[in-house]
């Protein structure tokens, strides 16, 4: 057992954890951040993906202690901090995934969206090939990846237009980037 000072989604958190606990265990069991999913606990599926300083890591293969000194982002921290307006603001990746139908069962998607965000952090105009590469560590069993890739491309196009964070909740959706996405 050791006490760890972690920085999770911008919050300083102090947790006691067994030496052998993974970051995924600490997130899910100690901090109640259950958005990070456990699909295999062996490093094979990517559903536990979180970001260390903006780069994707598999939290099921990462000892909790090695998260010390990194800025950890989980799905709960992907959306920007609320600005005081009452309208929820999401990351353009989240909005595009929702608009494009990428969220079927949704279980792989916290990891998938974080991998997509990590890609966009370093590459504002990824090619389809680069998107495939960046997401190749995240298994999805529902979508056949098509709408996921469309979602990333939609997010890229909307960000380029300075848009994409609006999460209007009228239900209408679509994936013709960038602004034709939400039909009247």
């Amino acid at each position: 057992m050791r006490v760890l000072q972690l920085e999770i989604n911008g919050d300083a958190r102090e947790v006691a954890a067994h030496d052998h606990w993974t970051l995924l265990e600490v997130l899910r069991y100690s901090l109640g951040l259950v958005g990070s999913k456990q699909g295999c606990d062996k490093g094979d599926c990517g559903s536990c993906t979180v970001l260390f300083d903006g780069k994707p890591v598999l939290s099921c293969l990462t000892l909790a202690a090695s998260a010390v000194g990194h800025q950890v982002t989980t799905i709960e921290g992907l959306a920007p901090k609320p600005t005081g307006t009452l309208q929820p603001v999401l990351d353009p990746v989240q909005v595009a995934f929702n608009d494009c139908g990428a969220l079927q069962c949704g279980f792989c998607q916290p990891g998938m969206m974080l991998s997509a965000r990590a890609l966009l952090n370093t590459n504002a105009e990824p090619s389809r090939e680069e998107i495939h590469q960046a997401l190749s560590g995240n298994l999805c069993r529902c979508t056949g990846y098509t709408q996921i890739v469309q979602a990333v491309e939609t997010a890229v196009a909307r960000i380029a237009q300075g848009d994409g964070a609006s999460a209007s909740n009228d239900g209408a959706a679509g994936h013709s980037p960038p602004d034709g996405g939400v039909p009247a």
């Binding site: 989980t74 999401l90 239900g171 209408a172 039909p183």
Partner: peptide, 25 residues
């Protein structure tokens, strides 16, 4: 008005934000 047109899923935002609760959660 709605049928036959592209729509978001009603649980889409919950799944996008990681707040949808699965059994192990």
């Amino acid at each position: 008005q709605i049928i036959g047109k592209p729509q978001r899923k009603i649980d889409g935002a919950a799944k996008a934000t990681g707040s949808a609760l699965y059994t192990d959660d």
